[in-house]
Design a protein around this nucleic acid. Structure first.
Lengths: 357, 357
DNA sequence: TTGTTTGATGTTACCGGTTACAGAAACCGG
DNA sequence: CCGGTTTCTGTAACCGGTAACATCAAACAA
């Protein structure tokens, strides 16, 4: 069953395909009678022009590429949904790749998107660009593509591209300050691979807070994982079995928090009775169930919207200067921690709706 | 900055573009010296042919469309991730739309995919096809497209298309039987919109179980929501405030379970002390944290894999007969309910790894 | 009346590839 | 030395659209 083309329509209507094209795109230029005849035939065959041909001819592309790790992580799930809702409203076609945090897949995905000649790109790099050569490849590809690109979530230093980020350093810093202010000196931390910039930033914040308060950072309390709950659980078990168990713990993303809480449950430890905890990143289910979970949240919807706004601006005006947007953290703390945090001026007075009784 | 094309390469290499094309596709037909010269120039310019042009010329499309509601629902998130991992391995390009359970968006998305001339389609319809005319449109579109299509999750009766489904009727039926076998006669149910086939199926199972056991189905205990946790919470509050509160509750998807559990928490009610509960669909976090949650799970990965297998088979052999795959439910029950269920032969003896102590 | 504008449509080239076909050079056996 | 292969490469048509330009008749202005 062959698809009907513009030629078929033209032949049947007894006009040239230019006329059919005009009917499709600039109807007003065509005689009403002719136009109606052509439209009838189009309707009859339920003809609709090929975007492939059209894009080739227009050397324009209404597709945008989305490259993210872990689509099934709630964080990126929400991001993705927000993005596709916007692309939809803007008549853009989203082409989506999942890299699984594997830098080689970044390269492969970017290659495909390059060949597709997408008109824009939203990209959360698997690994921060650095020594690793495969990621230099990714950088090279982005340059080759020469297409409006907005980074999301993962910051890349010295990289002239727009981006929407969350200030992980600040989050780690303030979370730790809060725990210190609450009287803790032995603070464990579970984070992701320190190859990842975001993981490093959060840990740096943790360090800075210690330094500032004249506390030593004890290496034995720093647990480098991979941002998965499985690893975080293993590490947390280890941490909770230390001879001198930390009095408080900072976990650096949603899955890490989950892993930690799991280990905690296994040991029958309770927050805040036995240990204090602050996580970075939210966990929807806990919100839904109003479960206690002290954490620093960042609005995923806001991030995605900001990213798309930057992208659209760049598509419309290719000369726009790259711009970085930093999303403000939202502190969701129980009454006691909140009081402490406010008293020490670590967070502003009131964040309406953000705190839980 | 114009993209380099096959013509640029040809010119620089002093050959015709046919030769360049041959180098790209059937290298063996080209003289080694010429080939190397062309390859060098290709490398130098980092040229890579346009998929748009190539697809047009080949009248073949290596894209596949994915149309699902709620990408940010963990269920579809996992499905999507599995799908894109497979498309990736098969060198297919995934184009993904989120319909938000809005049938009009189904139509819009399918239109775009039709115009894109995708080579295949994975589709979870927003609403079951029936009287609603807009969904007839979707059906029409699928016919027009004449492209291999696999439905996922949402069954459509009398529709000659492959699909991968979960037997919601059976799940609702057995879940209810278990609760009855555990001694309950007053069983509440919170479900999604009954316009949705999957919601109806689950509720029908609930009814059948009652009927079979000679129990009346009390209308006041049937709560029709929309499969969101917010609505489910509202309905559950209502249900839990009934003068004679049900002794057990069936919730029909993951978010509905969440809403119910939230309402339960508000009323300070405990499972199983105050009330018994079985949900349909899993909630990852509960798994991670080993939290008690009696439910009927279905493997999302398995569903997505089956769908892609069907799709690929159809793409390779367009004459393949449509085929429906029904995914087996997995019962995750606490020891007591499991004992009851096995004793009454509602579930098979042992499902290794499925039960929790 | 004639030159000019206007409106509707056809002709043609082009977008960036692929491929059927043709032709030239080299090779090979008789 | 000649006809037939084989090997390599170029020509041209095509995929399904768009758009600049050409054409031509009718309408209009001088």
């Amino acid at each position: 069953m062959k698809k009907t083309t513009i030629n078929d329509i033209a032949k049947e209507a007894g006009v040239s395909k230019a006329t059919v094209s005009r009917v499709l795109n600039h109807g007003e230029l065509v005689d009403e009678e002719t136009r109606n005849r052509v439209l009838d035939i189009i309707q009859k065959h339920r003809y609709s022009p090929s975007l492939v041909a059209r894009n080739l001819s227009n050397r324009a592309s209404n597709t945008i590429g989305i490259v993210i790790p872990e689509i099934d992580n709630a964080f990126y799930g929400k991001i993705l949904r927000t993005i596709v809702n916007i692309t939809d409203a803007e008549d853009l076609i989203p082409v989506c790749f999942d890299t699984g945090n594997n830098a080689e897949k970044d390269v492969r995905s970017l290659c495909v998107l390059r060949d597709l000649r997408v008109g824009g790109l939203i990209y959360a790099p698997s690994v921060e660009y650095g020594a690793a050569c495969v990621t230099k490849q990714a950088k090279q590809l982005l340059d080759d593509m020469g297409v409006p690109t907005v980074l999301i979530d993962r910051h890349v230093p010295d990289f002239q591209r727009s981006g929407v980020f969350f200030d992980g350093f600040d989050a780690g810093y303030r979370a730790t300050k809060i725990l210190i202010a609450a009287g803790h000196v032995n603070i464990g931390v579970v984070t992701g691979s320190l190859k990842l910039g975001i993981a490093r930033a959060r840990l740096d914040g943790y360090r800075k807070a210690h330094e500032e308060c004249g506390l030593p950072v004890r290496r034995a309390l720093v647990f480098e994982g991979d941002f998965t709950s499985e690893t975080a659980c293993l590490l947390s078990r280890e941490m909770l079995s230390l001879p001198e168990r930390p009095g408080a713990v900072l976990t650096c993303n949603n899955d890490t928090s989950l892993g930690f809480l799991q280990a905690l449950g296994e040991k029958k430890l309770k927050i805040p009775r036995d240990i204090e905890h602050v996580g970075i990143d939210e966990i929807d289910v806990f919100d839904d169930l109003h479960m206690r979970y002290n954490h620093i949240a960042r609005s995923r919807v806001e991030m995605a919207q900001a990213a798309m706004a930057l992208l659209l601006a760049q598509i419309r005006n290719p000369d726009a200067r790259p711009e970085n947007v930093w999303i403000a953290p939202r502190f969701v703390l129980d009454a006691r921690l909140e009081r402490v945090a406010v008293k020490h001026k670590i967070i502003a007075k009131t964040q309406k709706g953000a705190s839980r009784p």
